[in-house]
């Protein structure tokens, strides 16, 4: 089946099986920043933005996305670099496996919420699990990133 997607604003035509999930479609097309962490929509590692909203790509069938705009971290390089700068200063990177999905979720949050509090940030990001950091360094880094208006 043919599906037209706008991946990072570039029109892509994918021939997919009916049961193919977006995660596999994107990885097969070398968007390797999209990674699998679980099989049950519960870790957040595979998050991409669909029409600007964070969604776990392991749970969405590609054929249901005709004409939709998909954003991977390759599409928000400047913002990801800026967030990475603040993560670096807090030592919040650690293994990095979930960090592209983290960058996308934080970017979506920044567009969606005005001046979120720490509690709002936690609630927004709750689907993005991390086993390395204990989360707090990430939150400090995210607050600094949100304060940076440059």
């Amino acid at each position: 089946m043919l599906v037209n997607l706008y991946v990072n604003n570039v029109l892509k035509k994918y021939h997919v099986q009916a049961g193919e999930f977006l995660l596999d479609t994107l990885r097969n097309d070398n968007y390797i920043s999209v990674r699998r962490g679980c099989d049950s929509t519960s870790c957040g590692v595979c998050t991409v933005l669909i029409e600007g909203k964070p969604v776990p790509s392991c749970s969405v069938l590609t054929i249901r996305l005709e004409g939709k705009h998909i954003t991977t971290v390759e599409g928000i390089q400047e913002e990801a670099e800026k967030l990475a700068h603040y993560f670096g200063l807090e030592g919040a990177d650690q293994c990095g496996f979930c960090n592209p999905s983290m960058a996308l979720t934080v970017y979506a949050m920044k567009n969606e919420l005005k001046n979120p509090t720490l509690e709002t940030i936690k609630a927004y990001l709750v689907g993005n699990l991390c086993r390395c950091t204990g989360y707090q360094a990430q939150h400090i880094a995210i607050l600094h990133y949100l304060e940076d208006r440059s």
Partner: peptide, 21 residues
């Protein structure tokens, strides 16, 4: 002294790095 990790930025920006990549 505070030193960002050498791989942090590249990994967050989505560079290849892990076994499955």
């Amino acid at each position: 002294v505070i030193t960002p990790s050498v791989d942090g930025k590249g990994l967050m920006m989505g560079k290849a790095g892990y076994t499955n990549d």
